[in-house]
Computed example of a mutant assay.
Amino acid sequence: MSSQLDSAPIAPAALQRAAEWMARLWAEDASAADADACAAWRAAHPEHERAWARLQRFARQFDTLPRDVARSALAPAPRHAAGRRRALQLLGLIAAGGGTALLAHETDLWQSAASDYRTSVGETRTIVLADGTQVVLDTASAIDVRYGAGERRIVLRAGAILVTSAHETAPVYRPLLVQTPQGTATALGTRFSVRLDDGESRVAVFQGTVALQPLQPMQDGAPSLHLQAGQQAGYTRLEVQDVTNLENSAAAWTDGSLVAERMRLDELLAELGRYRHGVLRCDESIASLRVTGVYSLRDTDRSLANLAASLPVQLVYRTRYWVSVGPRQAS
Rank of each mutant, 00 (worst) to 15 (best):
A252F: 07
Q314N: 10
S201E: 03
T254L: 08
R290N: 02
P214D: 01
Q232C: 08
V259R: 11
R262P: 03
G293W: 09
S201H: 00
V279K: 05
G208D: 00
L215T: 01
L297H: 06
T254Y: 09
R202N: 09
Q207P: 01
T236Y: 05
P214Q: 00
V294T: 14
L315G: 03
A308S: 10
G234Y: 01
L246T: 07
L280Y: 01
C282T: 09
H226K: 07
Q219D: 05
F206L: 00
A260F: 15
P312I: 14
V279Y: 02
L196R: 03
L227Q: 00
E239N: 11
A251W: 09
E284W: 13
Q207G: 05
P217D: 03
V279G: 02
R290Y: 02
S257R: 15
N245H: 14
G208H: 01
H277K: 14
G199L: 05
F206C: 00
S296Y: 02
L258N: 11
L315K: 10
N306G: 08
E200L: 03
R202F: 06
D299E: 07
L269Y: 14
R237T: 11
N245R: 15
N245T: 13
A211G: 00
S201N: 01
L280A: 03
S288I: 08
D266E: 09
L238Q: 12
L289I: 04
T236A: 05
M218F: 06
L268W: 15
V259D: 10
T209P: 05
D220Q: 12
D266A: 11
S303N: 08
A270Y: 14
A309R: 15
A233Y: 08
L272Y: 13
L225K: 09
T236M: 06
Q241Y: 02
L196D: 00
V279D: 04
L272A: 11
G230Q: 02
L246D: 02
V291N: 05
L304W: 13
A260K: 14
A308M: 07
L289P: 01
A270N: 12
P217I: 06
Q207C: 01
M218L: 12
L246C: 04
D242N: 12
E271M: 13
P214H: 01
L258W: 15
S310F: 14
G199R: 00
R298E: 10
L215E: 05
Y321P: 00
A270G: 11
G234P: 06
V240R: 06
S249T: 13
G278S: 07
D301G: 05
W253T: 09
A204N: 01
V294A: 10
E239D: 06
S288W: 11
D242T: 10
V294W: 13
R290G: 00
C282K: 07
A252S: 13
R237H: 11
A287D: 04
I286K: 01
Q231C: 06
D242S: 10
R290D: 03
C282H: 10
D266F: 14
S249G: 07
R274Q: 13
R264M: 09
H277E: 09
S303A: 15
S285N: 05
A270M: 11
D299S: 11
E267K: 15
A308G: 03
A305W: 14
H277M: 07
D220A: 13
G230K: 04
A251N: 08
R318E: 10
